[in-house]
Design a protein around this nucleic acid. Structure first.
Length: 804
DNA sequence: GAGACCTTGCAGTGT
DNA sequence: GCAAGGTCTC
């Protein structure tokens, strides 16, 4: 459908006169007008001109560069509504792709709301993976799969690779299965089938990486299984090899919409391009400044290259921010400006006022958690001089999962309700995976990986020896594991107890499978399986403190099964939708990673752990250098722009990692926060400032020569102090890739008092001790209580200086 | 074959 | 500090 040939209606002038002036063609004008006459178009109300353009430019490729908080989702959903209400396409003729299930759900709801129609109307709105799975089920035979293929989770994938490495005699110590898994993932992300693998990629695994990859793919085929990467890769293969299939899908989708385009990897890009077929009506929305999935194979290049890929593309910029206060916006801009490779957008807002971004340094991670807990209380009770905030309005965004613990511990102590988003996931828990393996066997008894998982869970006396026999029998006869198990049974080589146990298990699987075929109630069956297999019993008998929780989870699982038509539908759902949004009422503070926070917003946001090495992550910089650092910076930008009104950045001098205390400098990103938009706070209690917050950054002339405790205070609030400035100068001149150790050694001579061997010192955390070792700014100290530790000199005070 | 105990590596982000 | 894997013992 091109242009507006069958939209000849005339604009009948119902009060939209002025707004239509910017429209490009008479055709689009009249079609909009006609639609509005036919139906109200509330979705257009309140859109700003670029948003409106994004909604109404329906013909040809469109790239919407949407900065944070500029109403991207709104424009996208309005666009869908517009297409539908103009009758340009029917709901099943629109392909709308998101990255997360959450985003897909939300879009479904919003479109449904706008159109007042049920949500199931758009079958092709979903994540890349879910959509590909759906397509692949229809064409499975073209890649030698059956349409009921299983989708493997990372656990299964890893076990499979392990088996292959063992069979191939590759040393698991030197070449860890996880490495192989991530290599294969990477290859699939780039759309390389084993035979397409570039020569340079073969280097790993004693130059056998490609070989292992090929074996792995062959194994998946025999198992009738797919991993995540396969879903896309198989579809690309099918599109490339079967033009008729591709043609069919191209004809079907009149409009393609892609959310978060900056996060697409090569294979997703290929898939889209194949479907779009050149200059189709494809609309991609994204923000190069929010590209944070490079490690997962995302190519910012895709968005940067859009106009080349889709000639004649219209680029629309959404730059008006509706979310954050000017201070927050300025802080975020300040940080992201330090990045070099950007398309460049300038966010602006009509809002004014608001408080500055608050910055605070703490002694250690526990104190940081405690302070944030108190601040949240203050927000919650309204004692901070603002309107009271609901706990739902508050989020703590961390760089890495392990940071969450300090907050959870603290919040449990003070009884503050919280929710962890994207934490250890329901469907990844052991008991859930075990139970799922039983379900999988009932649906398809051929599922060897599932069989392996539960053959001795609960314990049936079928240990390594017995399992080896089964594997061997299966391999010799080239049959599935379960057939192999039957052969072993017939051979009678197992001990009586094991034999009986195995027979019982096999009978069970056969019986359950029969019930699935007979169409028995799947909720009941789920329960029966867990019962008859002894699985529930196993946890009931388990004395460990977490077994009641596991039993509870199993109940949840059975309940979840009930929400689907059959077991198979349930399994499909679980393998693609790993998140579980079970929400029990009551306000809660949200704790999540920065990655998980993308697309969300909160009135109050805390960003703890801004320390060099943690954020930006040392590993990211080591692995990807400047590119890695820039991605970390975009992550900082994502974090900062989640906040609507209140934003607090914090760092700690000491933090427990891997069970040991480590110290760090404030993040270099802190240096990039523009001073004029930041208020520096002094942590309460610690330094004899009586807990008062420094209203303005203070210049404390004598501080560097004073006691070390004061020096610490200065570090926390001397954002504008000479020490701070010196540190800024240092970080600016420090080469990106310089290892942290050397960065640490560059330190103000002035700030370190000369300790001598034997000096009695005091350390906030470890107490009193004597210096036994001096190496640059690091001291080895034999503490009276804590034993020997190496610490940075500036965190230690000569014992005489200690005022308490 | 199963459980206790010890060692090791780890935790950077997720469909 | 913790979980997974390896080793030792019953």
């Amino acid at each position: 459908m091109s242009g507006g040939e069958h939209f000849g209606g005339e604009y009948d002038g119902d009060g939209f006169d002025d707004e239509f002036e910017s429209f490009e063609t008479a055709a689009s004008l009249s079609l909009s007008a006609r639609a509005m006459a036919a139906r109200p178009t509330p979705y257009l109300d309140g859109l700003n001109p670029p948003q409106r353009e994004a909604v109404e430019t329906l013909d040809g490729p469109v790239l919407v560069l949407a900065g944070a908080g500029t109403g991207k989702t709104r424009a996208l959903t309005a666009r869908i509504a517009h297409i539908l209400s103009l009758g340009r396409a029917r709901p099943w003729e629109i392909l709308a792709v998101t990255f997360t299930n959450k985003a897909a759900r939300e879009m479904k709801h919003r479109v449904a709301d706008i159109l007042n129609q049920p949500t199931d109307g758009m079958p092709w709105l979903g994540t890349f993976h879910a959509l590909c799975a759906k397509m692949l089920r229809r064409h499975a035979e073209l890649v030698e799969l059956k349409s009921n293929f299983t989708i493997l989770d990372t656990d299964d994938q890893l076990r499979l690779i392990k088996q292959i490495l063992q069979a191939e005699g590759i040393d698991e110590k030197r070449w860890p299965p996880r490495l192989m898994a991530s290599l294969i993932d990477g290859w699939k992300n780039r759309g390389w089938r084993p035979e397409q693998l570039p020569a340079a990629e073969h280097a790993a695994f004693n130059r056998r990486g490609g070989e292992v990859y090929a074996i792995y793919q062959a194994r998946l085929r025999t198992l009738n299984a797919c991993d995540f990467g396969d879903l896309l890769m198989h579809m690309i293969t099918i599109f490339q090899k079967h033009e008729d299939v591709l043609e069919g899908w191209r004809r079907r989708f009149r409009y393609i919409l892609v959310d978060e385009y900056q996060d697409t990897n090569v294979s997703q890009y290929l898939w889209l391009r194949l479907l779009a077929g050149g200059a189709k009506n494809i609309c991609c929305v994204g923000d190069d400044d929010q590209s944070i999935y490079g490690w997962r194979g995302a190519e910012v290049g895709n968005i940067l290259r859009f106009e080349k890929d889709f000639p004649g593309a219209k680029v629309i910029r959404l730059e008006q921010n509706y979310r954050s206060t000017p201070h927050i916006l300025a802080a975020a801009s300040g940080v992201i400006h330090a990045n070099e490779s950007r398309l460049g957008k300038t966010l602006w807002t009509e809002a004014n006022g608001g408080e500055k971004v608050r910055l605070i340094g703490h002694w250690d991670g526990d104190e940081e958690a405690r302070w944030i807990g108190e601040e949240i209380e203050a927000f919650h009770t309204g004692t901070r001089g603002h309107d009271r905030l609901s706990l739902d309005d508050v989020a703590i965004l961390v760089r890495a999962g392990f940071q969450m613990r300090a907050f959870e511990d603290r919040f449990l102590t003070i009884g503050m309700p919280y929710r962890v988003i994207g934490g250890p996931r329901f469907y990844e828990r052991r008991e859930i995976r075990d139970a799922m393996a039983y379900f999988r066997l009932a649906v398809s008894p051929d599922d060897g990986l599932a069989f392996e998982r539960i053959v001795n869970v609960p314990k049936r006396g079928l240990g390594d020896k017995a399992q080896q026999q089964i594997q061997l029998a299966a391999r010799d006869a080239s049959v599935t594991l379960i057939e192999g198990a039957k052969l072993v049974l017939e051979a009678g080589t197992l001990a009586a107890r094991a034999r009986n146990a195995l027979r019982e298990l096999l009978d069970g699987i056969g019986r359950w499978h029969g019930q699935v075929l007979a169409g028995a109630s799947h909720t009941e069956l789920a329960e029966v399986m867990l019962d008859e297999s002894g699985y529930t019993e196993m946890w009931k008998a388990d004395p460990s403190p977490d077994s009641p929780g596991r039993l509870e989870n199993l109940k949840e699982l059975v309940k979840a099964v009930g929400e689907f038509e059959n077991l198979q539908g349930f399994l499909e759902h679980v393998s693609l939708v790993m998140d579980n949004e079970t929400e029990d009422g009551g306000e809660k503070v949200s704790i999540m990673t920065l990655h998980a926070a993308k697309g969300l917003e909160f009135p109050a946001v805390f960003l703890p752990g801004w320390e060099d090495g943690l954020f930006p992550s040392q590993r990211s910089m080591d692995e990807s250098g400047l590119k890695g650092l820039e991605e970390e910076r975009r992550l900082a930008y994502v974090g900062l722009t989640r906040a609507r009104e209140h934003l607090t950045v914090s760092f700690a001098a000491n933090r427990q990692m891997y069970g040991r205390w480590q110290n760090a400098l404030p993040s270099r990103f802190i240096d990039e926060l523009p001073e004029a938009h930041v208020e520096v706070l002094t942590p309460p209690g610690l330094y004899g400032h009586g807990g008062a917050r420094a209203g303005a950054p203070t210049d404390i002339p004598g501080v560097m020569k004073g006691s070390q405790l004061e020096d610490r205070a200065a570090r926390a609030d001397a954002y504008n102090s000479p020490g701070w400035r010196r540190m800024q100068a240092r970080t600016a001149s420090r080469p990106m890739s310089q290892p942290r150790e050397s960065a640490n050694l560059v330190i103000d001579a002035e700030a370190i008092p000369a300790f001598e061997l034997g000096t009695r010192v005091f350390h906030q955390k470890f107490g009193y001790g004597a210096v036994t070792e001096i190496e640059g700014d690091k001291l080895g100290i034999e503490f009276e209580k804590a034993g020997f530790k190496r610490v940075v000199a500036k965190f230690v005070a000569a014992a005489d200086d200690v005022p308490f």
